[in-house]
Amino acid sequence: METLDIEKLNRQNFKSLSDALSMPGKITHIQELFSSHFLAVANVLLYSEVSFYYSGDEDMTLVEAITHPKATTLKEADYIFSDTIDVVLIGEAKKGDYLSPDFSATLIFKCEDFNADRYRLSGPGIDGTKEISLPCKAEFIERLMEKNRDYPLGIEVFFINRCGEVLALSRTTKVEGLSWDM
C-alpha cells in the first residue's frame, strides 16, 4: 500500500500555487488530498498561525485536525474558501492597511471549469498582456478591480476547477473584459 506523504504533497502543491500567483493567468495543477483538490489547497495554506473562513460542503475536519488553523469570521479571515464564485465575499474580505498590506485575505474559489468569459490580463507576472478565460462574470471582476483599486491594499484570488487546475489573480493584476463592452 502506498503511504500518504502529506508534506511532499504540500511541497508540490505549493509550487503550483506559487507559480500560479507569480504568473497570473498561468494554469497549474493541484494533486488531490482526501480525494479533493480543494482540501489539498487548504492543507498547503493552513497552519496554526493563520485563520480561515469556510462555509461549504467539503469536510474540513481532517485538514483542520492536521493543520490547527483558527476558524474565524469572513471579515477577519486570512484565507476564505468558497464552493461557489460568490461576489459578496470580495466585499467582506480584509484588504490590509497601508502599514501592513500583507494582513489581507486570500480567496480560494471552487469552479467547474475556467470557461465563463474572456479577459485580458496585465501587470506583474505577465509578459505584456495575456488573453484568457476566467470562470467569473463581469460583476465579479468589477468588484475585484474596485477592491484592488488602492494598491498596495487588496486581495488575491485563486480559482480551482474540477480537474484540479489552478489559476490566480494577484492584487496587481489588471483585468479587462473582452466579451463584454467596457
Partner: peptide
C-alpha cells in the same frame, strides 16, 4: 512543516505585493 508554511505564507504575500517586505 509549520515553519515552512509560515515562510510560504510570507512568500505568497511577497509575490502579491512586489518589493514590499513581509
Amino acid at each position: 512543516e509549520d515553519a515552512k508554511k509560515e515562510i510560504r505564507r510570507a512568500t505568497l504575500k511577497a509575490i502579491a505585493i512586489p518589493g514590499y517586505q513581509v
